[in-house]
Amino acid sequence: MYEPIRTKSVHTTARTTPDFPHRSREEELDIQLAGHLAALLTVTDELRELEPSVELDAAAERLVEQVARLRGEVPPVRVTTPARGREPRLTALHRRAHALAGRALVVAASRADTAAAILSAQRMDAHTAALAEPREPLTAG
């Protein structure tokens, strides 16, 4: 259908050694996936402060393992933030976590990383369920 390119690209340099480092597509995807998972870990830590649970603790540990694996066994930096208002913040955090898990799932699927894809899909499901739960309104009393 398409004719193959027969000439050299005009975008290649004449030198054999480029003056800037190149990374492979896999390396770029690893960096991108580690970034999405690290961001998801940050949101998960915020949720753990507002709503402590064993499930969030386990998810955070699995996220730490995956980020460290992708970064060559360098663990992610974790920062704790003071908890602010509860109810609107929880909903916003669950929505953000769902979006981040979705991004991580897309990258994990494109690099065929089964472990990260499964973890991302599980986190999406957990945050979807958390958003679907009816919550009691907070009352000032």
Rank of each mutant, 00 (worst) to 15 (best):
A104T: 00
H98L: 14
V74M: 08
P75K: 05
L70Y: 06
A92M: 05
P82K: 08
L100E: 02
A101I: 11
V79I: 11
G85D: 07
P82N: 08
R69H: 14
R96A: 10
H94L: 03
V77P: 00
H98E: 15
R71A: 02
R84G: 15
T91P: 05
E73G: 03
V64C: 09
A97V: 11
V74N: 08
V106R: 15
L70V: 05
T80F: 05
R96N: 07
L56Q: 06
A104G: 14
V67M: 12
E65R: 09
G102H: 06
V106F: 13
T91K: 11
A99K: 04
P52Y: 07
R78C: 00
V79E: 08
E87I: 14
V77I: 02
P52E: 04
H98T: 13
E87R: 15
P52D: 10
A101L: 11
L90Y: 03
L105K: 13
R95A: 08
A101V: 12
R89D: 14
R103I: 07
E55W: 02
Q66C: 14
D57V: 07
P82R: 12
T81N: 10
R86E: 15
R62V: 03
E65D: 12
E73R: 09
P52Q: 13
L100S: 07
A83G: 08
D57H: 07
D57A: 15
L90K: 01
T80K: 10
A97N: 00
V54E: 15
E87F: 10
R86D: 15
R86C: 10
A59S: 03
R95K: 02
E55K: 05
G102R: 01
L105A: 12
P52I: 09
L56M: 12
R71I: 05
V77K: 02
E55R: 02
E61T: 13
E51W: 05
R86A: 09
L100K: 01
E65W: 04
V54K: 09
P76C: 05
V79D: 12
A99Y: 04
R86T: 09
R89W: 11
T91R: 05
Q66I: 12
G72I: 02
R71V: 00
L56K: 08
T91F: 10
R86S: 09
A58Y: 12
G102Q: 07
L56D: 05
L105R: 13
T91W: 06
T81R: 03
V77M: 02
A68E: 06
R95P: 04
G102E: 02
E55V: 13
A83T: 06
V67I: 09
P52S: 14
A104W: 02
E55P: 03
V74F: 08
R89E: 06
L70F: 08
V67R: 04
E51Y: 06
